[in-house]
Simulated scan of single mutants.
Amino acid sequence: MLLLALCAPAAAQAPGPAPASSPARPAPAPIPVYGYEVVRAFPHDPAAFTQGLVIRNGVLIESTGRNPSSVRRVRLEDGVVLQSHELDPEYFGEGLTEKDGRVFSLSWINGVGFIWNADDLKPVSRFAYAGEGWGLTHDGSRLILSDGSATLRFLDLDTLAETGRVAVTLNGRPLGRLNELEWIDGEVWANVWQTDFIVRIDPASGQVVGVIDLTGLLPRDQAKDPLDDVLNGIAWDAKNRRLFVTGKNWPTLFEIKLTGPR
Rank of each mutant, 00 (worst) to 15 (best):
Q222W: 14
P17L: 14
L155Y: 15
S205H: 06
L143A: 11
Y91Q: 12
T169P: 07
P15N: 01
A18D: 12
T259G: 07
R262A: 10
A24W: 12
T159S: 14
R153C: 09
K239M: 08
E180H: 00
R200D: 13
L82M: 11
V59C: 05
N232A: 10
P9A: 10
G176F: 00
L175D: 12
R142H: 12
S63I: 01
E86P: 08
L145R: 06
G133F: 09
D78P: 03
N171Q: 13
W108G: 04
G79T: 09
I55M: 14
R177M: 14
V71L: 02
L106N: 08
A41M: 00
P261R: 01
E90P: 07
P46D: 14
L181S: 04
H44T: 07
R242W: 15
V38Q: 03
L175M: 04
A118E: 15
L258M: 04
P203V: 11
D196V: 10
G65V: 04
V209K: 03
P26N: 09
I61F: 13
E187S: 08
I109F: 15
F92A: 03
V59M: 08
R153I: 10
Q194F: 07
G35E: 14
E187V: 01
R40N: 12
A48S: 07
S21W: 15
W250Q: 00
R72K: 05
L2D: 15
G113H: 02
E90H: 11
I31F: 15
F92W: 14
N249W: 06
I212M: 13
D120K: 03
V71D: 14
A8P: 00
G95S: 10
A223N: 03
F244M: 07
T215A: 15
F244R: 01
V209M: 01
G247F: 01
P123K: 06
R165G: 08
E132A: 09
Y34I: 07
H85S: 10
E180F: 00
R25Q: 13
P174F: 05
L170H: 07
R177C: 11
V39F: 14
G260Q: 05
V80R: 03
L227E: 15
Q13M: 14
R177W: 15
A11T: 08
S70Q: 12
G35I: 03
D185M: 02
F254T: 05
K239I: 09
R66H: 09
I144P: 00
I184P: 00
F127T: 06
D45Y: 10
R73I: 12
A8E: 15
L82A: 02
L76V: 05
T169E: 15
V245I: 13
Y34R: 02
F127Y: 14
K257R: 13
D185K: 00
E162F: 01
V209N: 10
W116M: 12
E94N: 02
V39Q: 10
N240L: 11
L231V: 06
L243P: 01
L6T: 06
G16I: 03
V230G: 10
K224N: 10
K248S: 12
Y34N: 02
I31M: 04
L6S: 08
E180D: 13
S205I: 03
L160N: 12
K248Y: 02
